[in-house]
């Protein structure tokens, strides 16, 4: 499983730290440390963290996705969640 956090979006709400404390930690007010390759048994907690993020900054790539598809796909066509920017 691969985890990516868009740190431009992250606002330090710390909801991920409560949901998956072994994979996310906030140092000081807004420096987020996270495990980019958490073990598979953390999956349910990582999913909770992803869903609880108020700014949808956490992206999870599960192992059951075909790695080849991800590598070969055109980044501009990747279906990221729609985000409204003020």
């Amino acid at each position: 499983m691969r985890v990516v956090v868009d740190l431009n979006r992250c606002q330090g709400y710390a909801q991920c730290c409560y949901a998956a404390p072994e994979s996310f930690a906030l140092r000081g007010h807004e420096i987020l440390f996270y495990d980019p390759a958490p073990p598979d048994e953390a999956r349910a907690r990582i999913e909770r963290a992803r869903l609880a993020c108020p700014v949808r900054a956490i992206f999870v790539e599960a192992a059951d996705l075909h790695a080849a598809d991800v590598q070969e796909s055109d980044p501009s066509k990747v279906d990221l969640p729609k985000v409204d920017r003020p």
Binding site: Y13, Q15, Y18, A19, L51, A52, P54, V55, R56, P81, K82, V83
Partner: peptide, 20 residues
Amino acid sequence: RDDIQHFGFGGGLHYCVGAP
């Protein structure tokens, strides 16, 4: 639905402390 960016706990600096 996957795209659920809600205001159920408010947002910004008054975001609900008790959310977790």
